[in-house]
Design a protein around this nucleic acid. Sequence first.
RNA 1: GGAGAGAUGGCAGAGUCCGGUUGAAUGCACCUGACUUGAAAUCAGGCGUGGGUUCACACCCACCGGGGGUUCGAAUCCCUCUCUCUCCGCCA
Length: 432
Amino acid sequence: MLDAKLFRSELADTAARLLQTRGFKLDVAKLEALEERRKALQVQTESLQAERNSRSKAIGKAKAQGEDIKPLLAAVDDLGAQLEQAKADLHDVQNELQSIIEGVPNLPASEVPLGADENDNQEISRWGQPHEFAFETKDHVDVAAGLAQGMDFERGAKLAGARFVVLQGAVAQLHRALAQFMLNLHVNEHGYTEAYVPYLVNHDTLFGTGQLPKFGEDLFHVQGATEKQVPLSLIPTAEVPLTNLWRDEIADEEQLPLQYAAHTPCFRSEAGSHGRDTRGLIRQHQFDKVELVWLVKPEDSMAVLEQLTGHAERVLQLLELPYRKVLLCTGDMGFGSCKTYDLEVWLPTQNTYREISSCSNMGDFQARRMQARFRRKGAKKPELMHTLNGSGLAVGRTLVAILENYQQADGSLKIPTVLQPYMGGRSEIKAS
RNA sequence: GGAGAGAUGGCAGAGUCCGGUUGAAUGCACCUGACUUGAAAUCAGGCGUGGGUUCACACCCACCGGGGGUUCGAAUCCCUCUCUCUCCGCCA
Protein backbone atom coordinates (compact mmCIF):
# COMPACT_ATOMS: atom_id res chain seq x y z
CA MET A 1 0.00 0.00 0.00
CA LEU A 2 1.36 3.38 -0.96
CA ASP A 3 1.28 6.44 1.25
CA ALA A 4 -2.12 8.16 0.98
CA LYS A 5 -0.25 11.45 0.47
CA LEU A 6 0.83 10.22 -2.96
CA PHE A 7 -2.83 10.12 -3.95
CA ARG A 8 -3.50 13.64 -2.76
CA SER A 9 -0.71 16.16 -3.13
CA GLU A 10 1.18 14.17 -5.80
CA LEU A 11 -1.61 12.39 -7.58
CA ALA A 12 -0.76 13.34 -11.16
CA ASP A 13 2.90 12.46 -10.72
CA THR A 14 2.08 9.18 -8.98
CA ALA A 15 -0.32 8.18 -11.71
CA ALA A 16 2.29 8.91 -14.37
CA ARG A 17 4.94 6.85 -12.59
CA LEU A 18 2.58 3.90 -12.10
CA LEU A 19 1.60 3.91 -15.75
CA GLN A 20 5.16 4.23 -16.97
CA THR A 21 6.71 1.62 -14.69
CA ARG A 22 4.00 -0.94 -14.11
CA GLY A 23 1.52 -0.23 -16.85
CA PHE A 24 -0.96 0.44 -14.08
CA LYS A 25 -3.73 2.87 -14.93
CA LEU A 26 -4.89 5.05 -12.09
CA ASP A 27 -8.24 6.74 -12.57
CA VAL A 28 -7.14 10.24 -11.64
CA ALA A 29 -10.48 11.95 -12.25
CA LYS A 30 -12.28 9.43 -10.08
CA LEU A 31 -9.75 9.66 -7.29
CA GLU A 32 -9.90 13.45 -7.32
CA ALA A 33 -13.68 13.41 -7.14
CA LEU A 34 -13.69 10.86 -4.34
CA GLU A 35 -11.06 12.74 -2.41
CA GLU A 36 -12.99 15.97 -2.66
CA ARG A 37 -16.11 14.24 -1.43
CA ARG A 38 -14.19 12.53 1.33
CA LYS A 39 -12.80 15.79 2.61
CA ALA A 40 -16.22 17.48 2.68
CA LEU A 41 -17.91 14.52 4.34
CA GLN A 42 -15.21 14.01 6.90
CA VAL A 43 -15.27 17.64 7.96
CA GLN A 44 -19.04 17.53 8.15
CA THR A 45 -19.12 14.29 10.11
CA GLU A 46 -16.50 15.38 12.58
CA SER A 47 -18.13 18.73 13.24
CA LEU A 48 -21.44 16.97 13.86
CA GLN A 49 -19.66 14.67 16.27
CA ALA A 50 -18.05 17.63 18.00
CA GLU A 51 -21.44 19.26 18.40
CA ARG A 52 -23.02 16.10 19.75
CA ASN A 53 -20.18 15.70 22.22
CA SER A 54 -20.45 19.20 23.58
CA ARG A 55 -24.23 19.01 23.85
CA SER A 56 -24.09 15.69 25.60
CA LYS A 57 -21.59 17.10 28.01
CA ALA A 58 -23.91 20.04 28.69
CA ILE A 59 -26.77 17.65 29.36
CA GLY A 60 -24.64 15.73 31.78
CA LYS A 61 -23.68 18.90 33.59
CA ALA A 62 -27.26 20.17 33.75
CA LYS A 63 -28.49 16.86 35.05
CA ALA A 64 -25.82 16.80 37.74
CA GLN A 65 -27.04 20.17 38.93
CA GLY A 66 -30.62 18.96 38.97
CA GLU A 67 -31.79 21.20 36.14
CA ASP A 68 -34.51 20.29 33.71
CA ILE A 69 -32.85 18.66 30.69
CA LYS A 70 -35.95 18.28 28.53
CA PRO A 71 -35.29 21.40 26.41
CA LEU A 72 -31.69 20.35 25.90
CA LEU A 73 -32.79 16.91 24.75
CA ALA A 74 -35.25 18.45 22.32
CA ALA A 75 -32.55 20.67 20.84
CA VAL A 76 -30.40 17.66 20.07
CA ASP A 77 -33.27 15.76 18.52
CA ASP A 78 -32.39 15.71 14.83
CA LEU A 79 -28.62 15.63 15.33
CA GLY A 80 -28.57 11.87 15.54
CA ALA A 81 -30.13 11.25 12.17
CA GLN A 82 -27.93 13.83 10.48
CA LEU A 83 -24.83 12.32 11.99
CA GLU A 84 -25.83 8.81 11.03
CA GLN A 85 -26.32 9.86 7.42
CA ALA A 86 -23.02 11.71 7.27
CA LYS A 87 -21.21 8.78 8.82
CA ALA A 88 -22.70 6.32 6.35
CA ASP A 89 -21.81 8.51 3.37
CA LEU A 90 -18.28 9.04 4.64
CA HIS A 91 -17.89 5.33 5.22
CA ASP A 92 -18.93 4.56 1.66
CA VAL A 93 -16.51 7.05 0.17
CA GLN A 94 -13.66 5.89 2.36
CA ASN A 95 -14.29 2.28 1.45
CA GLU A 96 -14.24 3.13 -2.21
CA LEU A 97 -11.02 5.10 -1.86
CA GLN A 98 -9.44 2.41 0.24
CA SER A 99 -10.24 -0.37 -2.18
CA ILE A 100 -8.64 1.58 -5.01
CA ILE A 101 -5.53 2.37 -2.99
CA GLU A 102 -5.18 -1.21 -1.73
CA GLY A 103 -5.08 -2.44 -5.30
CA VAL A 104 -2.24 -0.18 -6.42
CA PRO A 105 1.17 -1.89 -6.78
CA ASN A 106 4.36 -0.60 -5.22
CA LEU A 107 6.49 1.95 -7.07
CA PRO A 108 9.74 0.45 -8.37
CA ALA A 109 13.07 1.85 -7.20
CA SER A 110 14.69 4.25 -9.66
CA GLU A 111 17.46 1.81 -10.65
CA VAL A 112 14.99 -0.88 -11.74
CA PRO A 113 15.00 -1.20 -15.54
CA LEU A 114 11.83 -0.22 -17.34
CA GLY A 115 10.16 -3.09 -19.12
CA ALA A 116 6.99 -4.98 -19.86
CA ASP A 117 7.80 -8.61 -19.07
CA GLU A 118 10.61 -11.06 -18.36
CA ASN A 119 12.25 -10.31 -21.71
CA ASP A 120 13.25 -6.92 -20.36
CA ASN A 121 14.90 -8.27 -17.20
CA GLN A 122 18.54 -7.46 -16.81
CA GLU A 123 21.09 -10.20 -16.25
CA ILE A 124 23.48 -9.09 -13.52
CA SER A 125 25.88 -12.01 -13.25
CA ARG A 126 26.49 -15.69 -13.89
CA TRP A 127 28.14 -18.15 -11.58
CA GLY A 128 29.52 -21.56 -12.47
CA GLN A 129 29.88 -23.38 -15.76
CA PRO A 130 27.03 -25.55 -17.03
CA HIS A 131 28.38 -29.08 -17.00
CA GLU A 132 29.08 -30.76 -20.33
CA PHE A 133 27.50 -34.19 -20.31
CA ALA A 134 29.08 -36.97 -22.37
CA PHE A 135 25.76 -38.81 -22.50
CA GLU A 136 22.17 -37.96 -23.21
CA THR A 137 20.73 -36.29 -20.14
CA LYS A 138 17.40 -37.21 -18.60
CA ASP A 139 15.11 -34.72 -16.97
CA HIS A 140 14.57 -34.88 -13.23
CA VAL A 141 11.45 -37.02 -13.53
CA ASP A 142 13.32 -39.73 -15.39
CA VAL A 143 16.39 -39.48 -13.21
CA ALA A 144 14.24 -39.95 -10.11
CA ALA A 145 12.38 -42.83 -11.76
CA GLY A 146 15.70 -44.64 -11.97
CA LEU A 147 16.30 -44.13 -8.26
CA ALA A 148 13.82 -46.63 -6.81
CA GLN A 149 10.94 -44.59 -8.26
CA GLY A 150 11.62 -41.98 -5.66
CA MET A 151 9.28 -39.47 -7.25
CA ASP A 152 5.74 -40.80 -7.66
CA PHE A 153 3.36 -38.45 -9.45
CA GLU A 154 0.66 -41.10 -10.03
CA ARG A 155 0.33 -41.72 -6.33
CA GLY A 156 0.43 -38.02 -5.64
CA ALA A 157 -2.50 -37.61 -8.01
CA LYS A 158 -4.35 -40.50 -6.41
CA LEU A 159 -3.95 -39.07 -2.94
CA ALA A 160 -4.66 -35.45 -3.71
CA GLY A 161 -4.82 -34.61 -7.40
CA ALA A 162 -2.76 -33.13 -10.17
CA ARG A 163 0.34 -31.19 -9.13
CA PHE A 164 0.95 -33.27 -6.03
CA VAL A 165 3.79 -35.70 -5.57
CA VAL A 166 5.00 -38.43 -3.25
CA LEU A 167 8.73 -38.71 -2.65
CA GLN A 168 10.21 -41.89 -1.26
CA GLY A 169 13.48 -43.44 -0.20
CA ALA A 170 16.72 -41.72 -1.05
CA VAL A 171 14.98 -38.98 -3.03
CA ALA A 172 12.79 -38.08 -0.07
CA GLN A 173 15.87 -38.14 2.10
CA LEU A 174 17.72 -35.86 -0.31
CA HIS A 175 14.78 -33.47 -0.19
CA ARG A 176 14.98 -33.38 3.58
CA ALA A 177 18.76 -33.02 3.48
CA LEU A 178 18.43 -29.96 1.29
CA ALA A 179 16.03 -28.22 3.64
CA GLN A 180 18.18 -29.04 6.67
CA PHE A 181 21.34 -27.88 4.95
CA MET A 182 19.81 -24.58 3.89
CA LEU A 183 18.26 -23.77 7.24
CA ASN A 184 21.45 -24.65 9.11
CA LEU A 185 23.51 -22.47 6.80
CA HIS A 186 21.32 -19.42 7.28
CA VAL A 187 20.91 -19.84 11.00
CA ASN A 188 24.51 -20.79 11.82
CA GLU A 189 26.40 -18.64 9.36
CA HIS A 190 24.14 -15.83 8.19
CA GLY A 191 22.67 -14.76 11.50
CA TYR A 192 19.01 -15.62 10.99
CA THR A 193 16.70 -16.53 13.83
CA GLU A 194 15.09 -19.88 13.12
CA ALA A 195 11.32 -19.75 13.33
CA TYR A 196 8.53 -22.29 13.31
CA VAL A 197 5.29 -20.68 12.22
CA PRO A 198 1.63 -21.47 11.50
CA TYR A 199 0.92 -22.85 8.04
CA LEU A 200 -2.63 -21.57 8.26
CA VAL A 201 -3.12 -17.86 8.72
CA ASN A 202 -6.03 -15.47 9.03
CA HIS A 203 -7.08 -12.81 6.56
CA ASP A 204 -5.56 -9.90 8.47
CA THR A 205 -2.19 -11.58 8.10
CA LEU A 206 -2.74 -12.15 4.38
CA PHE A 207 -3.75 -8.54 3.95
CA GLY A 208 -0.56 -7.44 5.68
CA THR A 209 1.77 -8.98 3.13
CA GLY A 210 -0.49 -8.15 0.20
CA GLN A 211 -2.01 -11.51 -0.76
CA LEU A 212 -5.45 -10.17 0.06
CA PRO A 213 -7.68 -8.69 -1.13
CA LYS A 214 -6.34 -8.87 -4.66
CA PHE A 215 -4.72 -12.30 -5.01
CA GLY A 216 -7.04 -14.55 -3.05
CA GLU A 217 -7.45 -16.96 -5.92
CA ASP A 218 -3.78 -17.91 -5.73
CA LEU A 219 -4.41 -19.40 -2.29
CA PHE A 220 -6.09 -22.42 -0.77
CA HIS A 221 -8.75 -21.35 1.69
CA VAL A 222 -9.85 -23.38 4.65
CA GLN A 223 -13.21 -23.03 6.30
CA GLY A 224 -13.57 -24.37 9.80
CA ALA A 225 -16.05 -27.07 10.68
CA THR A 226 -18.59 -24.53 11.85
CA GLU A 227 -19.80 -21.48 9.97
CA LYS A 228 -18.74 -19.27 12.82
CA GLN A 229 -15.07 -20.18 12.80
CA VAL A 230 -12.82 -17.59 11.24
CA PRO A 231 -11.68 -18.48 7.74
CA LEU A 232 -8.02 -19.37 7.36
CA SER A 233 -5.79 -19.88 4.36
CA LEU A 234 -2.75 -22.05 3.73
CA ILE A 235 0.39 -19.99 3.43
CA PRO A 236 1.76 -19.57 -0.11
CA THR A 237 5.16 -18.76 1.41
CA ALA A 238 6.63 -18.35 4.89
CA GLU A 239 7.09 -14.69 4.01
CA VAL A 240 3.48 -14.27 5.13
CA PRO A 241 3.76 -15.43 8.75
CA LEU A 242 7.35 -14.25 9.21
CA THR A 243 6.77 -10.70 8.00
CA ASN A 244 3.52 -10.44 9.96
CA LEU A 245 5.35 -11.28 13.18
CA TRP A 246 5.61 -7.53 13.72
CA ARG A 247 2.20 -6.53 12.46
CA ASP A 248 0.63 -3.89 14.74
CA GLU A 249 3.77 -3.57 16.78
CA ILE A 250 6.35 -0.88 17.40
CA ALA A 251 9.94 -2.06 17.76
CA ASP A 252 12.71 -0.15 19.48
CA GLU A 253 15.34 1.10 17.07
CA GLU A 254 18.00 -1.15 18.56
CA GLN A 255 15.91 -4.26 17.93
CA LEU A 256 16.41 -3.77 14.20
CA PRO A 257 17.41 -5.37 11.99
CA LEU A 258 15.37 -8.51 12.60
CA GLN A 259 16.12 -11.53 10.43
CA TYR A 260 14.12 -14.72 10.37
CA ALA A 261 14.50 -18.01 8.55
CA ALA A 262 11.89 -20.75 8.37
CA HIS A 263 11.45 -24.00 6.52
CA THR A 264 7.79 -24.49 5.67
CA PRO A 265 5.58 -26.08 3.09
CA CYS A 266 3.98 -23.60 0.71
CA PHE A 267 0.60 -24.01 -0.92
CA ARG A 268 -0.42 -22.34 -4.16
CA SER A 269 -3.55 -22.96 -6.15
CA GLU A 270 -1.76 -22.13 -9.40
CA ALA A 271 -5.01 -20.88 -10.82
CA GLY A 272 -4.31 -19.60 -14.30
CA SER A 273 -1.32 -21.89 -14.73
CA HIS A 274 -3.13 -24.66 -16.58
CA GLY A 275 -0.78 -26.34 -19.00
CA ARG A 276 2.33 -24.62 -17.67
CA ASP A 277 5.12 -26.84 -16.32
CA THR A 278 2.76 -29.77 -16.04
CA ARG A 279 5.59 -32.31 -16.05
CA GLY A 280 7.61 -32.86 -12.94
CA LEU A 281 8.27 -31.01 -9.76
CA ILE A 282 8.62 -27.49 -11.09
CA ARG A 283 5.11 -26.26 -10.39
CA GLN A 284 3.25 -28.02 -7.59
CA HIS A 285 0.34 -27.10 -5.34
CA GLN A 286 2.52 -27.99 -2.37
CA PHE A 287 6.25 -27.46 -2.10
CA ASP A 288 8.83 -26.79 0.59
CA LYS A 289 10.85 -23.64 0.86
CA VAL A 290 13.36 -22.11 3.21
CA GLU A 291 12.40 -18.48 3.46
CA LEU A 292 14.45 -15.51 4.63
CA VAL A 293 12.81 -12.36 5.97
CA TRP A 294 14.34 -9.10 7.18
CA LEU A 295 12.71 -6.19 8.99
CA VAL A 296 14.97 -3.16 8.80
CA LYS A 297 15.29 0.59 9.01
CA PRO A 298 14.43 2.31 5.73
CA GLU A 299 17.97 3.54 5.08
CA ASP A 300 19.30 -0.03 5.28
CA SER A 301 16.91 -1.88 3.04
CA MET A 302 18.74 -1.58 -0.28
CA ALA A 303 22.03 -2.77 1.18
CA VAL A 304 20.22 -5.61 2.94
CA LEU A 305 18.65 -6.72 -0.33
CA GLU A 306 22.17 -7.32 -1.66
CA GLN A 307 23.09 -9.20 1.50
CA LEU A 308 19.94 -11.29 1.46
CA THR A 309 20.38 -12.18 -2.20
CA GLY A 310 23.98 -13.11 -1.41
CA HIS A 311 22.73 -15.55 1.25
CA ALA A 312 20.52 -17.29 -1.30
CA GLU A 313 23.37 -17.33 -3.81
CA ARG A 314 25.60 -18.94 -1.22
CA VAL A 315 23.31 -21.98 -1.14
CA LEU A 316 23.67 -22.46 -4.89
CA GLN A 317 27.42 -21.93 -4.72
CA LEU A 318 27.89 -24.48 -1.96
CA LEU A 319 25.74 -26.93 -3.90
CA GLU A 320 27.89 -26.09 -6.96
CA LEU A 321 24.89 -25.41 -9.13
CA PRO A 322 25.43 -22.95 -11.98
CA TYR A 323 23.07 -20.00 -11.82
CA ARG A 324 22.53 -16.49 -12.94
CA LYS A 325 21.27 -13.44 -11.13
CA VAL A 326 18.64 -11.32 -12.81
CA LEU A 327 17.32 -7.90 -11.91
CA LEU A 328 13.62 -7.93 -12.68
CA CYS A 329 12.27 -5.12 -14.81
CA THR A 330 9.39 -2.94 -13.67
CA GLY A 331 6.77 -4.99 -15.48
CA ASP A 332 7.88 -8.38 -14.14
CA MET A 333 8.11 -7.49 -10.46
CA GLY A 334 5.66 -8.63 -7.84
CA PHE A 335 2.82 -6.43 -6.63
CA GLY A 336 4.45 -5.22 -3.43
CA SER A 337 8.08 -5.10 -4.44
CA CYS A 338 10.19 -2.06 -5.23
CA LYS A 339 13.22 -4.09 -6.33
CA THR A 340 13.60 -7.81 -6.99
CA TYR A 341 16.46 -10.11 -7.92
CA ASP A 342 15.65 -13.55 -9.24
CA LEU A 343 18.17 -16.35 -9.04
CA GLU A 344 17.86 -18.83 -11.87
CA VAL A 345 19.49 -22.24 -11.74
CA TRP A 346 20.82 -24.07 -14.77
CA LEU A 347 18.67 -26.99 -15.92
CA PRO A 348 20.55 -28.97 -18.58
CA THR A 349 17.51 -30.73 -20.01
CA GLN A 350 15.68 -27.46 -20.52
CA ASN A 351 18.94 -25.91 -21.70
CA THR A 352 18.09 -22.80 -19.78
CA TYR A 353 18.06 -21.09 -16.41
CA ARG A 354 14.92 -21.50 -14.27
CA GLU A 355 13.84 -19.42 -11.28
CA ILE A 356 14.81 -20.95 -7.95
CA SER A 357 14.78 -17.89 -5.71
CA SER A 358 13.26 -14.46 -5.69
CA CYS A 359 14.59 -11.79 -3.34
CA SER A 360 12.65 -8.58 -2.89
CA ASN A 361 12.82 -5.31 -1.08
CA MET A 362 9.21 -4.40 -0.33
CA GLY A 363 10.13 -0.98 1.04
CA ASP A 364 7.41 0.26 3.40
CA PHE A 365 4.63 -1.21 1.24
CA GLN A 366 3.87 -4.16 3.50
CA ALA A 367 4.80 -2.31 6.67
CA ARG A 368 2.14 0.29 5.96
CA ARG A 369 -0.50 -2.40 5.49
CA MET A 370 0.65 -4.14 8.64
CA GLN A 371 1.42 -1.04 10.68
CA ALA A 372 4.81 -2.59 11.49
CA ARG A 373 6.84 0.25 12.90
CA PHE A 374 9.87 1.21 14.96
CA ARG A 375 10.81 4.21 17.03
CA ARG A 376 14.17 5.90 16.73
CA LYS A 377 15.87 6.69 20.00
CA GLY A 378 14.48 9.94 21.35
CA ALA A 379 11.98 10.30 18.51
CA LYS A 380 8.32 10.83 19.27
CA LYS A 381 6.74 9.46 16.11
CA PRO A 382 7.14 5.84 15.14
CA GLU A 383 8.23 5.15 11.56
CA LEU A 384 7.36 2.36 9.18
CA MET A 385 9.94 -0.40 8.86
CA HIS A 386 11.08 -1.78 5.54
CA THR A 387 10.50 -5.46 4.87
CA LEU A 388 12.44 -7.85 2.66
CA ASN A 389 12.07 -11.48 1.79
CA GLY A 390 13.78 -14.07 -0.31
CA SER A 391 13.78 -17.78 -0.96
CA GLY A 392 16.85 -19.46 0.28
CA LEU A 393 15.88 -21.65 -1.61
CA ALA A 394 12.82 -23.35 -3.00
CA VAL A 395 13.55 -26.92 -1.90
CA GLY A 396 11.62 -28.76 -4.63
CA ARG A 397 13.25 -26.84 -7.43
CA THR A 398 16.66 -27.30 -5.84
CA LEU A 399 16.00 -31.03 -5.83
CA VAL A 400 15.16 -30.80 -9.53
CA ALA A 401 18.42 -28.97 -10.19
CA ILE A 402 20.45 -31.56 -8.32
CA LEU A 403 18.79 -34.50 -10.04
CA GLU A 404 19.49 -32.95 -13.42
CA ASN A 405 22.96 -31.52 -12.82
CA TYR A 406 24.37 -34.40 -10.78
CA GLN A 407 23.07 -37.33 -12.85
CA GLN A 408 25.61 -39.91 -13.99
CA ALA A 409 25.84 -41.96 -17.17
CA ASP A 410 24.92 -45.18 -15.35
CA GLY A 411 21.70 -43.68 -13.97
CA SER A 412 23.08 -43.07 -10.49
CA LEU A 413 23.17 -39.70 -8.78
CA LYS A 414 26.20 -38.01 -7.28
CA ILE A 415 25.46 -36.29 -3.99
CA PRO A 416 26.85 -32.75 -3.61
CA THR A 417 29.65 -32.69 -1.04
CA VAL A 418 27.90 -30.36 1.38
CA LEU A 419 24.85 -32.64 1.50
CA GLN A 420 26.76 -35.83 2.21
CA PRO A 421 26.77 -35.34 5.99
CA TYR A 422 22.97 -35.14 5.80
CA MET A 423 22.84 -38.36 3.76
CA GLY A 424 24.66 -40.60 6.18
CA GLY A 425 28.00 -39.85 4.54
CA ARG A 426 26.92 -41.32 1.22
CA SER A 427 28.46 -39.81 -1.92
CA GLU A 428 25.98 -41.25 -4.40
CA ILE A 429 22.54 -42.74 -4.81
CA LYS A 430 22.78 -45.92 -6.87
CA ALA A 431 20.46 -46.61 -9.77
CA SER A 432 17.87 -49.24 -9.02
C1' G B 1 -16.34 -31.32 24.59
C1' G B 2 -18.33 -29.42 29.76
C1' A B 3 -18.05 -25.52 33.86
C1' G B 4 -16.18 -20.87 35.30
C1' A B 5 -13.04 -16.21 35.20
C1' G B 6 -10.99 -12.48 32.35
C1' A B 7 -9.13 -8.92 28.01
C1' U B 8 -7.99 -1.15 29.99
C1' G B 9 -1.95 3.11 27.62
C1' G B 10 5.49 0.29 27.08
C1' C B 11 4.43 -2.80 31.66
C1' A B 12 1.61 -3.35 36.22
C1' G B 13 -3.12 -1.89 37.69
C1' A B 14 -7.89 1.33 39.23
C1' G B 15 -12.45 2.52 37.04
C1' U B 16 -17.22 -1.50 34.93
C1' C B 17 -22.36 -3.28 39.95
C1' C B 18 -25.16 2.55 40.24
C1' G B 19 -23.63 5.24 31.88
C1' G B 20 -22.23 11.88 32.12
C1' U B 21 -16.11 17.44 32.12
C1' U B 22 -12.30 9.71 32.24
C1' G B 23 -8.13 9.37 26.57
C1' A B 24 -8.74 7.25 31.18
C1' A B 25 -6.42 7.42 38.69
C1' U B 26 -1.97 5.37 40.73
C1' G B 27 2.84 2.88 40.46
C1' C B 28 6.96 1.40 37.43
C1' A B 29 9.69 2.31 33.01
C1' C B 30 11.10 6.25 29.72
C1' C B 31 12.41 11.65 28.18
C1' U B 32 13.66 16.90 29.63
C1' G B 33 15.21 20.32 33.36
C1' A B 34 17.04 21.53 38.56
C1' C B 35 20.46 19.88 42.44
C1' U B 36 25.52 16.94 42.07
C1' U B 37 32.64 16.71 40.26
C1' G B 38 29.77 12.45 38.10
C1' A B 39 26.11 9.02 39.48
C1' A B 40 22.29 7.59 42.80
C1' A B 41 18.47 9.72 45.56
C1' U B 42 15.16 13.90 45.50
C1' C B 43 12.17 17.78 43.17
C1' A B 44 9.54 20.07 38.71
C1' G B 45 7.63 19.08 33.95
C1' G B 46 6.66 15.76 29.96
C1' C B 47 5.30 10.97 28.26
C1' G B 48 -0.37 6.37 23.66
C1' U B 49 -1.95 5.49 18.41
C1' G B 50 -4.41 6.69 13.96
C1' G B 51 -6.98 10.44 11.18
C1' G B 52 -8.84 15.44 9.62
C1' U B 53 -8.77 21.00 8.90
C1' U B 54 -4.66 24.64 8.66
C1' C B 55 1.10 28.14 5.59
C1' A B 56 1.44 27.88 10.76
C1' C B 57 -0.01 28.39 15.85
C1' A B 58 -3.72 25.55 17.03
C1' C B 59 -8.20 23.10 16.95
C1' C B 60 -11.20 18.86 16.08
C1' C B 61 -12.53 13.44 15.44
C1' A B 62 -11.84 8.22 16.51
C1' C B 63 -9.77 4.36 19.54
C1' C B 64 -10.27 0.90 26.86
C1' G B 65 -9.59 -7.24 22.48
C1' G B 66 -12.80 -7.18 17.21
C1' G B 67 -17.77 -6.25 15.21
C1' G B 68 -22.85 -4.75 16.06
C1' G B 69 -26.78 -2.55 19.26
C1' U B 70 -29.33 0.68 23.23
C1' U B 71 -28.80 6.07 24.60
C1' C B 72 -28.65 13.10 24.01
C1' G B 73 -24.15 10.60 25.97
C1' A B 74 -20.85 3.93 26.59
C1' A B 75 -14.29 1.71 29.10
C1' U B 76 -19.04 1.23 31.94
C1' C B 77 -25.52 -1.65 29.73
C1' C B 78 -27.08 -5.60 25.74
C1' C B 79 -25.75 -9.13 21.58
C1' U B 80 -21.89 -11.59 19.00
C1' C B 81 -16.98 -13.17 17.65
C1' U B 82 -11.82 -13.84 18.92
C1' C B 83 -8.12 -14.62 22.41
C1' U B 84 -6.16 -15.72 27.51
C1' C B 85 -6.47 -18.22 32.27
C1' U B 86 -8.51 -22.15 35.95
C1' C B 87 -10.95 -26.94 36.71
C1' C B 88 -12.97 -31.59 34.45
C1' G B 89 -12.97 -34.86 30.06
C1' C B 90 -10.33 -36.38 25.62
C1' C B 91 -5.85 -36.44 22.77
C1' A B 92 -0.39 -36.38 19.04
